[in-house]
Design a protein around this nucleic acid. Structure first.
Lengths: 131, 131
DNA sequence: ATGGGTGCAAAGTGTTTGCAAGTAT
DNA sequence: ATACTTGCAAACACTTTGCACCCAT
């Protein structure tokens, strides 16, 4: 039997906090925003709700080294991490569905999806670094 | 001034341990293999050497959720993680160099590389699960 | 001899979890 | 009434680090 999810004040605040941001915050950044809305919400509750919301597809979880990020965008897309400032950006490239199919054919594995993270230096850091 | 690297007995044992495996071991798995060769090598030394070896390009580091994996293969290639058993496999698809170039053109970012991790169920787990 | 490497244990990060009390359904 | 959720703190998993000693160069 599958667990039923409930709407709680805390969960709503966490969801609002994610949706209020246009970047890709870490759980801890969300926690800080949440605390600004309600001082009593605990870190554990924020983590639990982020997991719950991303499992139910209301937000998405981006797996990058260090700390995972959360995203109000719900469609699958790629990301880029700046190796200088650590910022995470959305990547304007199309999801390569053909790769999943091709890999299934080649290996017999059942492929759900893939995640791609680009590494490099963002425009902001490039201009700061130039001499 | 760049730091000079030295050849030590411990570093050699760590490198040998990685090269002796055909899967994608975690640092801790390497640590256990290393301990079998020499009881006195510490976890810290194994981590330090894995970092040092992957920075110098003698082995490569695969960033997957949970614990990073290490690979004796030195060429860039994609990986697949089985969501059932957690195993990491090499993916027989070509690296999409065009994506890096395209992203550079579209964003002005300087792209070094990208990392792709496929998610799904491996053949072994598929046959175990079938009813 | 010099400065990078080692072993040890402690500390650091990011995240999950056990529990008793609270609350949405 | 039931069973999911919360707050709290403790526990976890993975990795790094401070320090005094060691050893490759």
């Amino acid at each position: 039997m599958v667990k039923q999810h409930r709407e709680t004040r805390q969960k709503q605040i966490v969801l609002d906090a994610v949706c209020a941001r246009c970047d890709h915050p870490t759980a801890d950044e969300i926690y800080l925003d949440v605390r600004a809305a309600d001082e009593h919400i605990s870190r554990g509750t924020v983590y639990r709700n982020l997991n719950c919301l991303s499992e139910s597809g209301q937000i998405s979880r981006i797996k990058v080294p260090g700390a995972d990020r959360y995203d109000r965008r719900r469609d699958i897309h790629y990301h880029m991490v700046c190796t200088k400032c650590g910022a995470v950006y959305d990547v304007p490239l199309e999801y390569n569905l053909a790769a999943d199919k091709l890999l299934e054919e080649k290996t017999g594995f059942s492929i759900t999806r893939h995640r791609t993270v680009f590494e490099g230096v963002c425009l902001k850091c490039r201009s700061t670094m130039e001499k």
